[in-house]
Nucleic acid binder design. Structure first.
Length: 103
DNA sequence: GGTCTGACAGCGT
DNA sequence: CACGCTGCCAGAC
């Protein structure tokens, strides 16, 4: 059965535990297209499943919070509420809370 | 059908 | 350390 990328992305996003984050690149790789991080961003931008899709848990590879359809500031706020510390628009020790989808 | 866009990543300056 | 340019790929027009 053929599944669109965005479907996979949504599925993967649902696997991210609370208090954890992931990057566009990791997500793209987990979806089967290691070079499609840009696509991931585009999908999240237009995502309709806000509730099932914690897009605020997706950050950039360098630890930057990145963008958010509702405003980057809102995103930072949400992440902070989940216990994730942010400094100057960047996640502190994001590597420690990174969810790589590895078993 | 082709063409343009984008919530990025990687490397150079 | 900060900013800029290039490359990549599915989706929207």
């Amino acid at each position: 059965m053929m599944v669109s990328f965005q479907e996979k992305i949504y599925l993967l996003l649902g696997q991210i535990p609370n208090g954890r984050v992931s990057t566009y690149k990791i997500l793209a790789k987990a979806a089967g297209r290691p070079r499609a991080w840009r696509v991931v961003g585009g999908i999240l931008n237009k995502n309709k499943n806000l509730v099932k899709t914690p897009c605020h848990r997706i950050i950039k590879s360098d630890g930057s919070v990145g963008g958010y359809a509702r405003g980057a500031r809102k995103k930072e706020n949400l992440l902070t509420k989940e216990g994730i510390k942010i400094k100057s628009g960047k996640v502190i020790d994001f590597t420690k809370i990174l969810y790589k989808f590895y078993k």
